[in-house]
């Protein structure tokens, strides 16, 4: 993913190192390779590269990782805004 950076300092990704048990699941699933383990300790590099897909949190056995997952899609967000404005409850997206 070299050559691509999105907006800094907005990610909802949070890591609680106290809880981490060093299973390494997050190091496997992250599509942007943000996690690594060194001596059983979780290390997070460059959290601004996180796209909030939620794979890490979904596969963490001890809830040491939290993120508000979603699809980074303007059309989906706009649809949600319009639906909220009109008081509609529709859960259908675009893709």
């Amino acid at each position: 993913m070299r050559g691509y950076r999105y907006i800094d300092k907005v990610t909802t990704l949070r890591v609680d190192r106290q809880r981490c048990v060093g299973c390494g699941n997050c190091t496997v699933v992250c599509p942007h390779r943000l996690f690594s383990l060194s001596a059983g300790q979780l290390a997070l590099s460059d959290p601004d590269l996180c796209m909030e897909c939620g794979a890490c949190a979904r596969n963490c056995p001890v809830e040491a990782i939290t993120v508000s997952p979603g699809v980074g899609c303007a059309v989906a967000i706009l649809t949600a805004w319009v639906n909220r404005l009109l008081g509609r409850k529709v859960l259908s997206g675009c893709c």
Partner: peptide
């Protein structure tokens, strides 16, 4: 271009909302 965020594999929803 803003709509193209939905087709990329690196844009976070927090970021897209920020720029929208």
């Amino acid at each position: 271009a803003m709509n193209f965020t939905g087709s990329t594999p690196f844009t976070s929803p927090s970021g897209v909302e920020y720029e929208m």
